[in-house]
Nucleic acid binder design. Structure first.
Lengths: 344, 344
DNA sequence: CGTAGAATTGGAAACGTTTCCAAATCGTTC
DNA sequence: GAACGATTTGGAAACGTTTCCAATTCTACG
């Protein structure tokens, strides 16, 4: 049987309470006593039993990360694993455990979430890819569980969140392309139920409005989040009677698909067509040609989410954050439209 | 305060023990009684407190997944997130929680692992990317914690594992390339402390031996696991006095780097040079040209690891598994060597 | 209907902490 | 050195389960 607080107390010749106080911040313990207790702990190899303390405290030092397994985002999206790593690193650094659960968006999501929250299994939850009318948000708000989200949260009062300003991002991209002489820009959008989807389309329209140009509604294709979706959407765009000379894909994985579709048409990105992605996954710098894209600092966002959640758990006020995506210019948009092959 | 087992017992007019038994498999509870108890549970919205049961049972229904954050594999490797998803899905499906922790391979890894294991925080651990003389294996073996690993485990008695037969895989690739008329094949290897690294090099040598050819030691370049490493290694291979006409990269991410480096030299994969990857990440089917690669069923491996671990936790015997990677032929090796531009 | 044996049931004790209150000790000041 | 407040300390009770044993209730059979 493992060594308990009682063994430590006995060995150090003190009471149970004193050992417990030493464990938790050492308030009201004389330095000499504490030293003795700590020595005893070391000597006995004492490890506090988390279950006992969780039970008594009716909470856990555990953060829950909940993601939809089969929603839109493919499992292999580098976005996801970078986020995951940031969460794990920061949670560990802050002395929290990270509990991970997945559920298909369509079925049993709330049940999973309930189990997650029930009995204080976690002290707070992190959501990602928030949706319009997100039932998870509603559920957590009702349950009174502290949570934060990556992606806008609808009743702003429900929880703080980190949101990347996709509107600004796409608008910047559109302006960038217009500045390089493009006139017809295609947009590959995200699944419409994601909060960020509408934003990005809006940014697209803003960019057009700013240039006093009229949006060709056929040049907006809504996709999902996989590479194949990107290819398909690009096919559609290139088959338009008046195909665009530039394409903005709302995620890098979509852009990778676009890259391939363009290539398969015998065209070359950067020479025949411009392409802009969104995310700046590490791979984006390494495609051929390297991809101009809107950078989201995903790892930093992940660590920040953890810090925000912990503050929230501790009852401190936390403000929502909006991050401006930065346009990373690479070769996929290097050539001005006028010099593109096949341009008028 | 939450509703407890005691409230349920009272409401259903039964004793504590009966409710508890109903919760855990309903052994020795009459159907009528159980129905009454379940009704009471539903009515009161009872959720068992996991901390209490963990404390009493001195264990948790929790699986720990431990990964090295900054070892070699980049955070964004799709390999990793696919694995992660498989673990999460299967653990959830089996009624287990998944606890995730990361630590840099060089510092504090064992301390993290200890905290992980201490006090029964997890009932078993899953490791990945096992290393030669892996201290984690040693630690877990000594601690008596059930664990399984993705990657060979050295004292085979320590734990069951799933290993992909990299030797066979690379040998197959070499044979495939020889069969297509190649004579000089470069190999981009993995970090040498990984158990799988040596295997793959060995497979390479076997393939050469089988063809009664002599290995050019300069054609073996050890890399890490990032895209840039792949580029760098490819640069080195292409700068050899007698550059290879085909390259095998020991991971798809490395192959992506190779793809770029080759492209930057003005060469084209599939036309001027053949390329084979390892992993078959989803992207591999979508590069240009699509990548011939050795398929590892990562998601299936992940779910299987979970099942194996649970068996192990329950004391059932579990055998190690060796998976044969399957060569997926795509266009990156489509053309026989004789037709390659610049071939003799 | 009685009885043995099996199946079901009730409830006390225990898991290892934290938390509270009362008791003991300390340090100051008169 | 007495008195007093502040600080430190000890330990019982409680957190919500599980698990055991003993007690009770069934079932089947003569």
């Amino acid at each position: 049987m493992a060594v308990t607080i009682r063994d430590v107390a006995e060995k150090a010749g003190v009471g149970l309470g004193t050992v417990s106080r030493t464990l938790n911040g050492a308030a009201h313990v004389r330095a000499a006593t504490r030293a003795r207790i700590e020595a005893a702990m070391r000597e006995l190899g004492f490890q506090p039993n988390p279950h006992a303390s969780n039970l008594k405290r009716a909470t856990a030092t555990t953060i829950g990360f909940f993601f939809s397994s089969s929603h839109h985002r493919p499992l292999s999206d580098p976005f996801f694993s970078t986020l995951m790593s940031g969460l794990a690193d920061e949670a560990t650094a802050q002395g929290y455990d990270l509990l991970v659960a997945s559920a298909p968006a369509d079925g049993g999501e709330l049940e999973k979430l309930e189990r997650f929250v029930a009995g204080g299994r976690v002290s707070g939850v992190i959501l990602t890819d928030t949706r319009i009318n997100d039932t998870r948000v509603e559920f957590l708000r009702k349950a009174g569980t502290p949570f934060v989200a990556f992606g806008r949260v609808k009743p702003a009062s429900a929880a703080p969140c980190i949101d990347v300003d996709g509107r600004l991002g796409v608008e910047t991209a559109v302006k960038h392309l217009f500045a390089r002489g493009h006139t017809a820009i295609g947009l590959i959008g995200l699944p419409e139920d994601l909060t960020c989807a509408a934003d990005r389309v809006e940014g697209y329209r803003l960019g057009y409005a700013h240039a006093r140009r009229k949006v060709d509604e056929h040049a907006i294709v809504m996709g999902c989040l996989t590479e194949s979706d990107g290819s398909r959407a690009t096919e559609a765009l290139l088959s338009l009677p008046k195909p665009p000379t530039a394409i903005i894909a709302c995620s890098d994985v979509l852009a990778l698909g676009a890259l391939r579709a363009i290539h398969q048409r015998g065209l070359e990105v950067g020479r025949d067509l411009a392409l802009v992605g969104f995310d700046d996954i590490p791979l984006a710098a390494h495609t051929s040609p390297p991809l101009t894209t809107l950078h989201q600092p995903i790892y930093a966002i992940a660590t920040d989410l953890v810090r925000m959640l912990i503050k929230r758990i501790n009852g401190e006020p936390v403000a929502r954050k909006v991050i401006k995506p930065e346009l990373i210019e690479r070769e996929s948009t290097a050539r001005p439209a006028g010099s593109l092959r096949g341009s008028p």
